[in-house]
Every structure is written in C-alpha cells, then in structure tokens.
Design a protein around this nucleic acid. Structure first.
Lengths: 305, 305
DNA sequence: ATGGACGATGTAGCATTACTACATGGATGT
DNA sequence: ACATCCATGTAGTAATGCTACATCGTCCAT
C-alpha cells in the first residue's frame, strides 16, 4: 500500500471531493481519480461510491482513511523529530484567527517568532460568523477557535486542540451606568437591561440564555453585532450592555467599565485547532508555543491591571 | 521525505551494508546507493559515512532510521487494521525455530492454522548454536528464541518479544539411577554426578554454574551436545545426567526419568521475536497466537501427565 | 608490495509510473 | 432541456527509479 495514495484517500475523506483534493494537492482531478482507483485495486474492495454527481467514502474507505491519518502522523512525527535534531523549525506556517484574539496576541507572538530563523508565519483573519472552525483546518495549519466550555465544535474529527486561554466574559457598561459602581453583577441585575447581542447562533448567546433562565424571564436584545469595536462603541454611547471578553477586547476605553458576572459560568475557551499530522510539525508547534506563552502573559497582565 | 527511502535507511541501519540492503529488497546496490543519496540531500545533512570499504550511519542517520522504524510500524498497523477489516490474514509468514520447540509445538500450530485460508507459513529450523536470534529477525518474520529468565539477548534493539512458554529444566536420569526414586533433586545431589553438558556459551550452562556455586564445588562435564536426541540417548545409555526441558523434550522414553531441581531457579523462557513493524501484520499475529495457544496447551498436558 | 576481492558509487540508458490535456458521461438544478 | 458540475477514461508525456557496467578506494593474502 503506497503512502502517497493513502494520503490522497485521507485528503478525500477530509475534503469530500476529488476536485477539492486535486486543487489542494496541485494535481488534476484525473490524476487523483486514477490514483484512487489503483488504491482501490490494491485494497481489494471498493473504497468510494458515487453519490449524485459527487463521491462518498464507503465504510471501508473511512476505515482505511483513518489508518492513513495515523500514518501521516507518524510521518510528520519523524519529520518533526528530524527538524528537532537539526534544531531548525523551518518552513511556512499558515494561521487563521478571529479578530479579537488576532489583535490581542498575534503581534506579540509574531515578534517572539522573529527570533526563529527560516520560520515564516502567514496569518489571516476571518469573521467568526463565517467560520466553521473545524473545516478550516484543512486549509490552514493552525486555526484559532473560541467556544464555550463543554462545547467541542471540533469534536469527533480527531483534531488536535491546544488550549490557549480561558477568558472570562464580563459585562460591559457605560461609565455612568447605575451598576458601574458595583464590584460584580448578577443575572437579576442584568436581565431587565437593554442588551447588545451577537448574531443568532454565536456562542455568547448561550450565556445570555443562562442569565434568562437564572432570572426567570427573557431579556430584550436591541442590536446584534459580531464586531467587538462596534459593540464597544454602542456600549459607550449608552445603547445597552453586552458581554465583553475580559482579555482580548480592544483596550477598553475608560468610558466603558467591565464587571464580572456572578451566578452563571461566563467564560470562553480559546484553542488552537490543528489536524493531528500538522500538529506534529516542529514549525507548527513552535508557533503554537509562542501563542500559548503570549496568551498566558496577556491573561496575567490584564488580571493584575 | 519519501517513505520508501526512509525504509531503505531503516534497512541499512539493520543490515549494515548497501549490498545487504540491495539483496534483501531485490535491487542492485547502485539503486540503493542512489536513493540514499537523494534522502541525504532531502535531509540536508550527511546520514552515512564511509568506514573502510563499508558504510556506517552517522548519529543523524541513526536518529532518522529510528523515526523511519516508527513510520514502518504505523504503516504496518494500517495494513494490519485493513486486513482485520477484511478479516483476512493473508500472505506468507516465515518462521525460524530451534529444534525442540519446532518439534513440540509447530505441528500443532500449523494444523490449527490450516483453518485460515490464504495464510502460508514457511518454517525453518536452525541449530541454536549458530543462532544470533536478534539478527535473524531481519530475515524471518518470527524467530523463536529461548533464554534464561532475566537475560534478554534481543535487548536494546527494540524488538517485539511475545512470551510463549516458561519451561522448567529438569534433570534427566537413567531409569536405574540412584536418584530415580526421588521426588526432586538438589544441587548437592547433582554436583558429583557425571554431566552431559551443552557447548560452551549455551544458556543451560548458567544453571550448571548456579548448581556448582550452590554446592561449593565444580561439576565434571564429560560430553557436550546441543541436540536433545543425542543427549537423551546418552542419558539412557548411562553416560551421565543432563538438563532436559520438561515440555519440549521429545517424548521421554520410559527409560529416562525427569526430576525437578530444588534450590536453583531452573527454567528457560521461550519467546517469539519479531521486528516491531512485522509484529503488526495480522498474518504474523495470527501465527503467533496459534503458537501461544499450542504452547499453553503443551505446558498443560505435560503438567497433568 | 601487489594482485585480487569486496563494497560503494557514478553514468547512461531503459522501464515503470504518475501526471497533464482533453474528451466523455452521469447527475443536478434552473 | 440546456448549462453546469463532477468524476473518470484515454493517449501521450514527463519524471522517477531501476539495471548494467565501469570506476575507485580499502582490505587481505601471498
């Protein structure tokens, strides 16, 4: 069983179409199709079957693709060990971040990484509303994702997740708000306020639901934004209150105050998501290490401030 | 880094010469040399260096070869998982045994394995005096080895060892011997007897040394044989006493009696030795399972008889 | 010391393999 | 029904890995 062919099957399992695999690997669909056919002959039973105009893996194909992933990990581990031996995390690492985290830790992390020669980091940001984080690990080495504790949107797929930060979500209030003097706020304090929410389906919403459940009545949401800058501007202008991540929010203007919430668990988990084989690369691990370090420092400085 | 090339490096690490690798993989030495050169270029540093007219791995080469072994294991595991999926342990398994074990369990094991279609077992025997067991795992899938407990002649090399049998070594006596009526014998009983020994360096010797140490004086060894049949014939003829493995000795003629030894630990461990990647093959594991089963049954029937 | 054997490696040519370009055919959806 | 999308088949080409043979350095026996 040839490894290159197995790898093609693995890609197919991930990307779901011959054309996508061909694009991702820089080949023509015909070439991919031919190689998969050879693999099927070697395997001795059908690995794919047509479904509409596309193609899906049979259960046999799925099984073999899983093994192929293990082989890919072993290969990458060998390669990473080798890089380590040469002490040379070389190559290009692509990274996808959501805006707040990108602004909060990326500049610092990339500064640290400039000390590493021959390591290029190519960072991009994507609005989280569009982000099916797990899928994007096919196209980026590292995907920064955020989620509520207990929710694992990357589950099942066997992705590697390195936790970077558990970030409390506070309530952002205008400086002249009636609750601005409090040390903390409770669901009962908050439920009758006018809320600035996030678009439906965003993870933050779960916490608002928790607050409603705790207080026993519904909250009213006036506006919905995903961008934190806009959110903060609206809070400052007195249009309502909202969740504000304690560490990664932009430098909070003095006109806004953050108050911790008591009574509901209110935090988000920020992780680096990677395909397990990619996670073995020394270059990738180096970048993740830098992110972990900077995230820790961020939490530390903000906590003491 | 190409897997086929890595595998070549792994073979080189095991066999120690380009020519040997070429023979083992069915290629010309030139082809092997060229591929290793390409690998070296990919790796970015020398993996081998000339030593006399031969070739040795650099420390870098050793390191990479170790990783290559891991990759080979992952690949074989994938292949084995696949065979398991198809429930079809196909292919040819080569096995090397030493005479007594071969006679005692191989016929039974191969009988059991006839139930498995498409599985061919090719067994060979080799006189143990010639056997550097560990080396032979390069040429045979399974090598049956025996050793004293605590001694691991296959150590260091990362070989997989599956224990088959812990076999007591008794003392074989002619039926009319003065000790023939005993339930057991002690070092003091034995040390003044005339001994039939094994060639120097054989594992059994260690036990004789232990007996000498226990009794406080040297034993005299008249003849030295490695073949058990000869040994038994000499015991029967009254030329001396000797260690006789309790289970794997040929059907003990009634003219010989076996007496357990008290006072020294007297047993040998019989294991199946395999290269770790080979050990992943379902076909190989199937054969080993059959050996384990038959070995257990052997111990059981002989113990009750 | 010297010739012969051995082991690794370089070169040229050949065989196999994997790829591209293009054509075909089935499924989808407007 | 037509245009579109996706997989796949075919023929030719490019790349790769191999053999055959020659060469060079090292070791050993005479």
């Amino acid at each position: 069983m040839d490894v290159r062919r197995l790898d093609l099957l693995r890609e197919l399992a991930e990307r779901g179409s011959v054309t996508a695999v061909a694009e991702a690997t820089g080949r023509t669909p015909s070439a991919v199709s031919q190689q998969l056919k050879v693999l099927e002959r070697e395997a001795g039973m059908p690995l794919t079957e047509r479904s509409g105009r596309g193609l899906v893996l049979t259960s046999a194909g799925e099984a073999l693709a899983r093994s192929a992933a293990d082989v890919a990990v072993a290969l990458e581990r060998a390669s990473a060990l080798w890089d380590e031996f040469r002490n040379d995390p070389s190559g290009r690492v692509t990274l996808l971040t959501f805006p707040t985290m990108g602004a909060a830790v990326l500049p610092g992390a990339l500064t640290d990484l400039q000390a590493v020669p021959d390591l290029e980091v190519e960072a991009t940001d994507l609005d989280p509303e569009l982000a099916e984080f797990a899928d994007l690990t096919s196209d980026y080495d590292i995907v920064l994702a955020h989620t509520m504790p207990g929710v694992l949107p990357w589950g099942g797929r066997g992705l590697t997740a390195v936790p970077l930060l558990t970030e409390p979500l506070d309530i952002g209030l205008p400086a002249d708000h009636r609750l601005a003097g409090r040390a903390y706020v409770t669901p009962a304090d908050l439920v009758d306020e006018t809320w600035l929410g996030v678009p439906p389906g965003y993870p933050f919403e779960r916490i608002l639901h928790a607050i409603e459940q705790q207080a026993g009545r519904r909250a009213t949401v006036s506006q919905r934004f995903s961008d934190m800058r806009i959110m903060e501007a609206f809070i400052e202008a007195g249009f309502g209150i909202a969740f504000v991540p304690r560490y990664t929010s932009s430098r909070v203007p003095s006109s806004i105050v953050l108050k911790p919430i008591r009574g509901v668990e209110s935090s988000r988990l920020i992780v680096a998501l990677m395909r397990p084989d990619v996670a073995e690369r020394l270059a990738v691990r180096t970048v993740v290490d830098a992110l972990v370090t900077r995230a820790a420092r961020l939490a530390e400085t903000r906590a003491t401030a």
